[in-house]
Amino acid sequence: MLWVHKYRPTSLESLDYNEPLTETLRRLADKEDFPHLLVYGPPGAGKKTRVSCLLRELFGPSALKIKEEQRVLQAGTRKFDFVLVSSNHHIEINPAEAGNQDRVVVQELLKEIAQTQPVDVTAKHRFKVVVINEADSLTRDAQAALRRTMEIYSPNLRLILLANTTGSIMGPIKSRTLLVRVPAPTTEDIGNVLAKVADAQDVQLPQDDAARNQLWQNISEKSNRNLRRALLMLETMYARSEKIDASTQVPLTDWQLMIDRIAQSIVKSRTVQQLASVRKDYYELLTHCIPETVILKELLFALLPRVSAVAGKNIVDAAALYDHRLRLGNKGIYHLEAFTASTMRILEEA
């Protein structure tokens, strides 16, 4: 099993950090009634882990016995397949996978679930829970469909929405849910978790405490305090290098390395030839399904440490402008190139 999977906490007691939040969740689960939740926080902070622990607290161990189902949904005349993960007490859906048809998923599935009530009268809770992943990528239509469903079927349906930010979730839904923020783990938290896993897996670590802390520091920095990524990094380091110490290079993904190279080359030389070669790299990234907005963001943060403060401010301005245009249009390569060209111009002028 992957380490991220193997050492994932399955109950509220075994959660490693954010103690006050854990306490809040426990209190929520203990009460008779349970609100709709909107859980948000940066990627790899442990949102989903916390939600599955919460479900276990609510319904007992059987909530962790998940299986997969494939449904055929009808959108107008077109049929499409949709995969959902479910247990006896909850289902987990990812409407973003249905693309523009997410409204249909929300309407059809939720109605179907809400209209059946568990027969078991002795059960502690009479409602079912629907976990919606990536709720911030729900279209407006889908959110509107959700809004009414939350009220009508509230006797036997509770929603848990998972999102990175609350920005793109509309007001009416925010007002119907209890907002729970899961902050990213601190470097210390990450160090503790990694040390625990390393111990369980018998990874040979540097004996010296300072070196060890330096290692955790490196991983935490490179992973952007994303615990999921940090664990993957540790596992990769374990497989790829004989001995792990503070000087061991933290493995990055190919696409991150490529964006870093792009930033380097922009700062180094600013010619049209450079622009053409950077464009080739952009195509390479795009064909590997790295979204334009992600490229832009990573590139910006790779550029900033390499340029002066004044130029930096202008580059951030440009990035904001082109990010906006990226989201409006659908020809990402245009705007990426425009961003590159204007960055080069800014650097030339500085």
Partner: peptide, 27 residues
């Protein structure tokens, strides 16, 4: 199933796959 529920398509593609590829080349 557990891996799939942990990694949505985007994070599977951008986070998991690159590292898993490295795991396929153990030293």
């Amino acid at each position: 199933t557990a891996t799939r529920s942990m990694f949505c398509l985007n994070s599977y593609r951008r986070e998991l796959v690159p590292y898993v590829w490295q795991l396929a080349n153990p030293e």
